[in-house]
Amino acid sequence: MSDPSSFDAFEQAMQGLSHRLSSRGTMREAVIARLFQHTGARLNDYLDAPFKPHGLNATSWTSLVVIYASKDRRLKPSELSVFMNSSRMNSTRVARQLERHGLTRRVADQTDGRQLFLEITRKGIAFVENQLPLRRRHLEQAFDGFAPEEVDQLQRLLRKLLTNLE
């Protein structure tokens, strides 16, 4: 886990700028925005770490779980793109990665052979079922030290920010 003071240098620089410009209000939001970027980068690394030994990342894991949880454990690539809030090109890249690892396969629709589905394989099902409890513990560790009410509050605040940004 990284040193929590790794953000201090930026924050000190912003405080100095704030004093020079006498604009503490806007600097507060700038610090918060940069803190989100800093935290987001660390969070991405943290979420990817358990999957790196398997040649995957958090995006491919989430895609696999979405397929696993879908009706008949299969999805059209376009549906995966919508679920992942991702471009079709990125979803195609992820789908190919999952196929290369033998976790999914492409299958034709029985009623329309032009339509393809991404279907989870037995190997993919076993991988998801093995990793789910490990993933849950990994996520819980990220929030270790937070009271349940703090986690709830963080979720509400992040949703509110997301709404403002949409």
Rank of each mutant, 00 (worst) to 15 (best):
P4C: 03
P4T: 02
P4L: 04
S6D: 03
F7I: 06
D8C: 01
Q12C: 03
A13K: 10
M14S: 10
Q15C: 10
R20V: 03
L21R: 12
R28G: 01
E29P: 00
E29L: 11
L35F: 14
A41R: 14
N44W: 15
D45Q: 00
L47T: 09
L47D: 02
A49S: 02
P53K: 01
H54C: 08
H54I: 01
G55V: 07
A58G: 09
A69H: 13
D72C: 04
D72I: 08
R74P: 02
K76Y: 00
S78V: 15
S78A: 12
E79Y: 00
M84D: 02
N85D: 11
S86P: 11
S86D: 06
N90G: 06
N90E: 13
V94M: 02
A95Y: 01
Q97G: 00
G102W: 01
R106K: 14
R114T: 15
F117Y: 07
L118N: 01
I125L: 04
A126N: 13
F127Y: 00
V128W: 07
N130Y: 01
Q131D: 07
L134Y: 04
R135A: 11
L139H: 10
Q141A: 11
F143K: 06
D144P: 03
D144M: 07
F146A: 04
L158R: 09
K160Q: 09
